[in-house]
Design a protein around this nucleic acid. Structure first.
Lengths: 342, 342
DNA sequence: AACGTTCCCGCAATCGTTTGCGGTAGAAAA
DNA sequence: TTTTCTACCGCAAACGATTGCGGGAACGTT
């Protein structure tokens, strides 16, 4: 069994001190003399003493656990976020409990509940894009520090860590325009997806600033974009009389579908139609031609989110001011779009 | 703050009962009358009572947390394992704490320590292939139930959940032979990698059973196989006078490197050289030609591991018998290998 | 010598829950 | 009526660490 661990009492007895003294000695309390501290430290090391985390948490009402809720751990981007979270949390001495919401709002609010009930010190969440009611989230927020990342919502007044989506897609479209493309299609999700909408914003802005007409025929949307949907949307775009000369998808996996379909129809990439994705996923260098896409620094986002969350946990006065932190992205030009020629 | 939660004492006071009675009522203890139980239940629901997990854990020395240690969460296969773990743990009422070892044995043993000190009820681990000393693992094992999965070691006497690696690669090689290939190369890792060795076993067995000569020139190894190494190894194999007509890699990502290199050298896949990978990673359908590979059901492995672990946690007598559970794999034939012609 | 300080340290309560043991009321048996 | 037996329930200790408070010893100050 687990009863091999030593307790404060044991140390106290062996040293003929009280448990309080031992506790204070270990916590470097000023009331304790240096000699006593040293003696206690020494014996504690020898006995491999480690404080019982439950007694501690129980007493201090602190668990040093942060809860993380993501839609799906198998998405590459999610996993890079998690990597960053784990790394930073480890450094700061926190443990991480991870759960999946699977984009199911019922599950999501359930997870929120159990996390709270479990007593995590703070919650890091990527909100499901289907979330329509925020009451439960707001409720939790009153009790536990919450930081949103990646998929956020302006309806929740807490600190949010995001990439500058609009700017990122603005850069992507700018790039396409600079390479001479004039009829740029976008494949996006419907308006309930926060990220999709912001990326769409950037698209619109870039076109407007370059005096390019916005044509709704080459703006296609669907729910839950994926490779298959990418394929379908591409066929739709190819059936147009006036075809696009570039396709921007708000997702890498959709972009893969686009490329595969274009290749099947023997359309030259990027000369006839250029393709740009979003995410810099693992696929992007596997597919041929290699995909031009936007790199979202997942690890950095995760790390930043943890930093802000722990800050709010440890400094409750910080909790009132909710900020939005934007992480910069990079456009990575590969073979699916033209190079700029001077 | 968090002080909104109600306690046993509160309920007891409002109902003019003792906390013990309330506790027993909530735990469905036979000593308590049905009417009392109902009253308690009702009020508990009304007050949104949830037991303080720390007081509980403190008292019962049980946390309902299982610790998971994997080398790298961003590997697709790892993330599917995690998905399975999360799902099953959630069903069984356990929380999951995840950490990465990054294939660093120091980190790994550190993680093991903090998990133990943290008081997890059990540990699920995929051991780093560099692990040479097992003393710390064995030490932990005496205190906490441990189940190994994916990357295991026969030097640790605990239950292990693996795919039948040897059989899987045997199937792969058999398939290649049946499609007429006679000179089959293998790209593997060095002998410190448990998985690699077992896959190599299957390779050897298949060749022997089909009376095919084993040629060490087309058996190439390296440490930490990846896409780049796949490329390098392929060039090495192509430089041979007597080239292989099929390449089996023990990793999908290496297989991608192989395919990319073969394409660069204008070698027809699968006619001149067929390629088979291992893992059924996400890449396998992105690359062209699509990769023939072995599907490892990650979610199922994760789920199974959790099941066995919780069984050992809740039934200490089970802990003595250590079993090896093998999960079946499937060969998925795609375009990088020939179809069998009858 | 009497008093005030400072430095260390111990006592005991506390956190919320569980559980062994003992106790009481009421019913049933004598 | 007395005794025995259930069926229910409460008392209090326990888990391990933390902390307010109080106190003794040693020293310095008048």
């Amino acid at each position: 069994m687990r009863k091999k661990v030593s307790t404060l009492k044991e140390i106290a007895q062996k040293l003929d001190l009280s448990t309080s003294t031992v506790s204070r000695a270990l916590n470097d309390h000023p009331d304790i003399s240096t000699t006593t501290k040293q003696k206690v430290q020494k014996l504690a090391n020898k006995l491999h003493y480690t404080p019982n985390i439950f007694a501690q948490g129980f007493r201090k009402n602190k668990t040093n656990i942060i809860g993380v809720i993501v839609p799906n751990v198998t998405h590459y981007f999610s996993s890079t976020l998690i990597k960053g979270i784990l790394k930073e949390a480890d450094i700061k001495g926190y443990k991480v409990i991870i759960t999946e919401s699977n984009n199911d709002i019922k599950k999501q609010s359930e997870m929120l509940q159990t996390m709270a009930q479990f007593g995590v010190d703070g919650i890091l969440m990527s909100v499901s894009k289907k979330t329509k009611s925020f009451t439960d989230i707001l409720d939790i927020m009153n009790r536990i520090p919450l930081v949103l990342f990646d998929k956020v919502s302006y309806k929740i007044p807490c600190t949010q860590i995001v990439v500058n989506e609009a700017e990122a897609s603005y850069k992507a479209i700018e790039h396409l325009i600079q390479t001479g493309k004039k009829r740029i299609a976008i494949i996006k999700e419907n308006k309930f997806s926060y990220n999709s909408e912001r990326r769409y914003e950037g698209y619109l802005k870039a076109l407007k600033q370059n005096n390019i007409e916005i044509d709704n025929k080459i703006i296609v949307s669907c729910e839950d974009l994926n490779l298959e949907q990418g394929r379908r949307m591409t066929k739709l775009l190819l059936s147009l009389k006036h075809k696009p000369d570039a396709i921007f998808t708000i997702t890498d996996s959709a972009a893969i579908g686009v490329i595969k379909t274009l290749k099947r129809f023997k359309i030259k990439i990027p000369r006839e139609i250029a393709v740009v994705g979003f995410s810099n996923s693992l696929y992007s260098t596997i597919i041929e031609p290699k995909l031009t896409t936007i790199d979202q620094p997942g690890e950095k986002i995760g790390k930043t989110a943890v930093t802000y969350l722990i800050n709010e946990i440890e400094n409750p006065e910080e909790r009132t001011t909710s900020k939005t932190v934007e992480i910069a992205t990079n456009l990575i030009v590969r073979d699916s779009s033209l190079k700029i020629s001077y």
